[in-house]
Amino acid sequence: MGFYPADIEAKAAAVIAAYRDLGWMISTAESCTGGLIAGALTEIAGSSAVVDRGFVTYTNQAKMDLIGVTAKTLEGFGAVSRETALQMAHGALMRSDAEVAVAVTGIAGPGGGSPEKPVGLVHLALKSRSGLIDQREMRYGDIGRDQVRLATVRTALEMLTVAAQVPA
């Protein structure tokens, strides 16, 4: 067994195989997961044929500088929002050679939550060059920092799997 739980490795291997067969590349834009999605994908041998690049944009400044999230979006909706996740996915796609980009932003805890945005809230977005967009708001709950981050990786891999099944 590698670094990740077996179910994540199996999902990542399936994503790598599906995208390799399609000839598609993936980019990631990650905040609360800090690179764990890209890490799960690159855990798989042969992933260099599929993983183009990953952006770890933990701060608002990094989101703006690296992937073009606007200050207006961050000020108006916050870093943890549907709007920010969608801009992150768009920016990662536009700043890569990938066909599909997945982005995540959330509150892994243990602190940082509020009644409106509790610990365990994560926004995920996926965008493809063909225009396919998937967006999910997940409320994993206050299940612990590691578990929120791993749950987010699982959801992102599921979104990538679904995107590979849609004709380009």
Rank of each mutant, 00 (worst) to 15 (best):
T161V: 03
D97W: 04
L126R: 00
L157E: 11
L121S: 07
G144F: 01
T28R: 02
F77R: 11
R139W: 05
Y140Q: 13
L66Q: 13
L157Q: 03
A49G: 05
A98M: 08
D65Y: 13
L41N: 12
K63R: 07
T161A: 03
A101E: 10
D52V: 10
V122F: 09
Q165F: 10
A79W: 04
M138C: 09
T59W: 00
I143C: 01
E9R: 07
P167Y: 04
L150H: 04
A45R: 15
T57W: 00
R136T: 10
A14E: 04
S96D: 13
I67F: 04
Q61V: 15
S31K: 08
A10F: 09
A45G: 11
E9L: 10
R145F: 04
G46N: 04
V166Y: 14
P115L: 01
Q135W: 08
Q135K: 12
P167D: 09
D7P: 01
S47R: 08
W24S: 14
A12C: 14
A108G: 03
K72E: 12
A13G: 06
L157T: 05
G54E: 15
V15F: 02
E75I: 11
L160V: 14
V50M: 03
G141E: 02
K117Q: 02
I37T: 07
M1A: 13
L121H: 09
A164D: 05
R53E: 13
A156K: 08
G2F: 12
P110D: 13
L124R: 08
R139S: 11
A79H: 11
S81Y: 01
E30L: 00
G76S: 10
A62H: 07
S27Q: 05
R95H: 04
A38W: 02
M64P: 00
G46Y: 15
G39H: 06
G78F: 00
M138P: 03
M88Q: 14
E30S: 07
L124S: 12
C32F: 03
E158G: 10
I37E: 01
A101Q: 09
L93E: 05
I26N: 03
A12R: 02
E43T: 13
R20K: 13
Y58V: 11
V69C: 01
A40V: 14
S47T: 12
A6G: 12
L132H: 07
A108K: 12
N60E: 11
A164Y: 10
L126V: 05
T73Y: 06
A101C: 10
S31M: 02
Y19I: 13
P110G: 06
L74V: 01
T57D: 00
A79T: 13
T33S: 06
M64F: 09
P167Q: 15
S130W: 07
V153W: 02
M88K: 06
Q61H: 11
V122E: 10
S130H: 11
R95K: 10
G91D: 13
M159H: 00
P115S: 12
P115E: 05
G34Q: 07
V51G: 09
K11V: 07
V162G: 02
G35V: 15
P110Q: 04
F77D: 15
A151L: 02
V56Q: 05
R82K: 12
V100G: 02
Y4K: 09
G113S: 13
V15N: 00
D142S: 14
I8A: 10
L150C: 01
D65M: 08
E30Q: 06
T42V: 10
L160T: 11
I26T: 06
G141K: 07
Y4L: 00
Q165R: 03
V56M: 14
T28K: 08
K63N: 14
E137H: 00
R95M: 03
I16F: 01
